[in-house]
Write a protein that binds this DNA or RNA. Structure first.
Lengths: 139, 139
DNA sequence: GATTCCATTGCAACCGGGTTGCGGCATATA
DNA sequence: TATATGCCGCAACCCGGTTGCAATGGAATC
């Protein structure tokens, strides 16, 4: 576990460093895709659900992670790509297969952003396409 | 209540007509925007939650209505625009204000659809932008 | 007309993700 | 050392959604 890297990043975001916050951030950074609260609970079995919850809450408020609602009923979390700021450009496309109920993370397809009516300002985008994935289409 | 119109539409979709289904469909058609299960429960106080739930399930399966997950924790329902088929073109943009927690239905902005990798086929799009709405921006 | 069958519905209970109150412990501040 | 503040675990709670089951009712069959 890269303790140092986590500590630095928390510092830079102005988040007080604690052992649990390091654990959670480390797990998120190591994860290949997104992680749900339940995923983190499983991964960090010594840490209480509510602590993880509150940690994620803080991370999100400080734009260290962002959440994706893929419509499966459990919100997913992901470390923001850019080190210093979490921009809308970080938001990419997700695909949910209605057959096998898996969520795919299409990292290289960034979520489109439409022109909004006067007065609306966007801070994040939740873009999820539902349909049938390749392997379910074949079989 | 336009009983006839509802009955016809149910018929055309191959959905067996029942009093409750007429009530639910009528409420949805009359609604200015989207409705949640809870909204319908309030509107149709004589009808049980589970009955509404199952009715919506059937409606959705027959592509008479579609659901939108706006990230508020309660799924919204909406009658498909086109009479005969519910196409992806029906899906429009939704905006969720992080300050006042309201969901706006931007009916005239259709949800964009990105090119998916080989093998993925899209059946619906869930596109929701989060940010600050005009009245909250004003302060 | 009587009987059988199956879809529909209401009720109540359940489920699971998320959230909160609170008390204890640790850490910081005076 | 005394005092405040923040962090954490536990347990309980909340709420939207979902399911099992029994009763009802209408259509199909005898």
């Amino acid at each position: 576990m890269d303790n140092r890297k986590c500590t630095d990043r928390l510092d830079r975001k102005g988040i007080r460093v604690t052992p649990i916050r390091i654990l959670v951030l480390d797990a998120l950074m190591k994860a290949s895709g997104t992680m749900s609260l339940a995923d983190l609970e499983t991964e960090l079995e010594t840490v209480d659900k509510s602590s993880i919850f509150r940690t994620l809450e803080i991370f999100e408020k400080h734009h260290l992670v962002h959440s994706i609602d893929d419509g499966t009923g459990s919100v997913k979390f992901e470390v923001c790509e850019s080190e210093d700021d979490c921009s809308i450009a970080d938001m990419h496309t997700h695909f949910y297969c209605e057959i096998c109920h898996k969520t795919f993370c299409l990292k290289d397809i960034s979520a489109p952003l439409v022109d909004l009516p006067e007065g609306f300002s966007a801070r994040s985008v939740n873009y999820i396409i539902k349909g049938v994935c390749p392997s379910c289409a074949r079989g």
